[in-house]
């Protein structure tokens, strides 16, 4: 009986840096010319940021796993997201004209941060309409999926001195994915994939896929 809900942008750190963001956007459009005002942050427009592993995970989730096993999917997601961050996302993130190296010490910190973020994220999911006194485990799992989907962005927020503005888009795209996927919940088809939180997890993955692939172009 999961009511429909969606996930909000998980922006709890509010050192928002809109100025830098807008500047980065202008620069983005000017083919990343150097500027003298300060270090812009942006994600390179490249096919490298396309998170192919999310498609594979989604395929596993929908076709291969039994009864849409959320927990195993999460076990699969975390290492793959770390690999994605190291091999793809971090290599495309530009901070002050140069691509930063992966700071290994920051990875566990941001993993911990993502884990901590599951709690406010869960609160927001409940505020957006998830049930309060039942299905809490499922709701937390959904929050965990969302937070670890956002993990590369969370890492980059840490890595780029809390320039949150540029990475807001990634959180929002995951939230929008969840939001859109809710539409199947009220349908009276009585399928297993309408069970809470299956459609939202699929939506979150789809939203993250679109987000990581397209946000550099926005």
């Amino acid at each position: 009986m999961p009511p429909r809900m969606r996930v909000a942008p998980k922006k709890t750190v509010s050192f928002s840096d809109d100025e830098n963001m807008t500047r980065a956007r202008q620069l983005n459009s000017k083919k990343h010319q150097t500027d003298i005002y300060g270090p812009p942050v942006y994600v390179k427009k490249s096919l490298l940021t396309v998170p192919v592993h999310l498609v594979a995970l989604l395929y596993y989730y929908i076709k291969l796993s039994e009864d849409f096993d959320d927990v195993r999917l999460l076990y699969g997601l975390i290492p793959m997201q770390i690999a994605y961050l190291a091999a793809q996302f971090n290599r495309s993130t530009v901070y002050g004209h140069k691509i930063l190296k992966l700071k290994l010490s920051l990875v566990p910190i941001s993993l911990g941060a993502a884990l901590l973020l599951t709690l406010p994220c869960m609160l927001i999911i409940i505020l957006m309409g998830a049930p309060v006194r039942m299905l809490l485990r499922e709701t937390w799992l959904l929050a965990a999926h969302c937070c670890f989907l956002a993990f590369p962005a969370v890492y980059s927020v840490f890595n780029c001195d809390f320039k949150v503005g540029i990475f807001k888009k990634y959180f929002i795209s995951i939230a929008i994915g969840c939001w859109i996927s809710c539409i199947v919940i009220p349908l009276d088809w009585d399928r297993d994939w309408q069970q809470w939180p299956t459609p939202l997890i699929v939506g979150a993955y789809a939203g993250a896929f679109v987000g990581y692939s397209l946000c550099p172009y926005l």
């Binding site: 429909r4 969606r6 809710c182």
Partner: peptide, 10 residues
Amino acid sequence: HQIWWWTSIA
């Protein structure tokens, strides 16, 4: 009611 809720959180 779900659609209206969906719209209102949007």
